[in-house]
Design a protein around this nucleic acid. Structure first.
Lengths: 267, 267
DNA sequence: CTTATTATG
DNA sequence: CATACTAAG
């Protein structure tokens, strides 16, 4: 019997987050694996202690577009294998997906595109969803064949249910809470077979939200969205024992518009 | 017998300078006329108390290019006439020149282009110089015919002599201290007939510098350039009684990489 | 509102 | 090194 702790955090620019609290947060975390999104930098642009933090193995997956997207997976133990992208011609170089294999477990960091209704970015988000659902299914089957569970962490940029965002009524026509996006999340669960670990542990609460707009007083009012998920294969999800949004990690200063989402598993 | 005080100040973005000390500086100044350069905003983008400061008449001359250049002339008395540009097809809409007529005096605010050797910007700077020298001559003749003296204030982006910049040796091949640029300044004096009022009052000192790079410790080390001039017709220049660079105006916070240059005339 | 980019100085 | 811009979120 052992414990595995995994955190996912959209850092909204790792260079800005560095020195605003990210470094201290990482030094203090008890997590075994940390998935980052919106790194928005190439490794070479990062300070060495951020690029190669003591005690961590890091898989960096920057975007070809400078200052955009970028994901990473940090693990205290060395991965047995690691991959960037999911076999997509369009998306593999855009810094939106990376995965590592640990003994008995594949952990992925996902940064699903965000969009705005009626824009090319929204169409890109939709194309990503189509391709990525296939990947989720294949990933699960491949992992099962290899005796691995799967945990896909990251910023999915979709609130699934009304409980997943404060102002769901006013957002029914906005990207991130569109009926078709919510239906896609349902397919991730029902068709691809993943479990929303945080919701499984907290079935009857609003939130816990993990993103708050920088505009207005969204953070202080907890007017947020739950768009950062840890989606696990069922056997792994059953072992999740606690899930917390580290709202306090953003104090005294917010180092991102997201807060880290941490899930513990008793394996 | 009366006193006229004129200040020229490159504000390096009036919106940024506002709230960092510019407003307080203007409220405290004893100047009768203030020439601004690098306003980098359209009047509509400025707070009302900046756009229409109490007690001042203001001629704004923004650039068509958003956030670039932009000059202004503030006067406590209403100008008899005012003009933007100097009859140049290329430059009149670029926010680099404006002039006002006061009784017996034309005051102009100039922001001469800056460049880098070997770039199109340097060629633009050279073209500006060619056209502007002609204007300086014509302006002087026109003003003389109208019984006016002329004072052309602003950021000329050229250090004339070795005493006009700290590190003249290392800048002999850099834009701003090129031999041909220095020769052009000499022509402004010898051909067009203007007098460098600050240098006339302080013939034997290094500086006083009016611009310091934001890089390194240039300001603290007074490693600066004297590129902000008040060039006067001879009879006016003879009446200049004091010239100061308001280095202290940038304390406690620097609200620009330039400091205001103020000249007093006893008319 | 904040992080990046780029151009300009 | 700083002020603008624009794209993105």
């Amino acid at each position: 019997m052992s414990t595995l702790t995994v955190t996912t955090a959209n850092v909204n620019g790792l260079r800005a987050a560095t020195g605003k609290g990210y470094v201290e947060w990482l030094a203090a975390t008890k997590a075994d694996v940390v998935c980052l999104q919106e790194v928005r930098a190439e490794p070479a642009q990062l300070a060495e202690h951020v690029r190669e933090p003591e005690g961590w193995h890091v898989l960096w997956a920057p975007s070809v577009a400078k200052g955009r997207a970028g994901v990473a997976v940090l693990s205290r133990t060395e991965p047995q294998d690691q991959r960037i992208g999911f076999g997509s011609t369009e998306f593999d170089a855009t810094g939106r997906y990376a995965e590592i294999d640990l003994p008995g477990l594949t952990v992925a960091s996902l940064y699903l595109p965000s969009g705005e209704v009626g824009t090319p970015r929204q169409e890109e988000k939709e194309r990503f969803q189509v391709e990525f659902l296939d990947h989720l299914k294949a990933l699960r089957e491949r992992a099962a064949a290899g005796g691995r569970e799967v945990l896909v962490c990251g910023d999915w940029n979709i609130a699934h249910h009304e409980a997943d965002l404060k102002n769901w009524k006013s957002n029914k026509k906005n990207s991130g809470f569109l009926p078709e996006e919510r239906a896609w999340m349902t397919r991730v669960i029902d068709e691809a077979g993943y479990v929303d670990t945080v919701r499984r542990l907290h079935p009857d609460v609003d939130g816990p939200y993990s993103w708050w707009s920088y505009r207005g007083r969204a953070f202080d009012n907890d007017s947020g969205w739950r768009i950062d998920y840890q989606m696990a294969t069922p056997a792994l999800a059953e072992k999740a024992t606690s899930a917390v949004v580290e709202r306090a990690a953003t104090h005294p200063e917010r180092w991102s518009d997201h807060a880290p989402v941490t899930v513990m598993f008793e394996l």
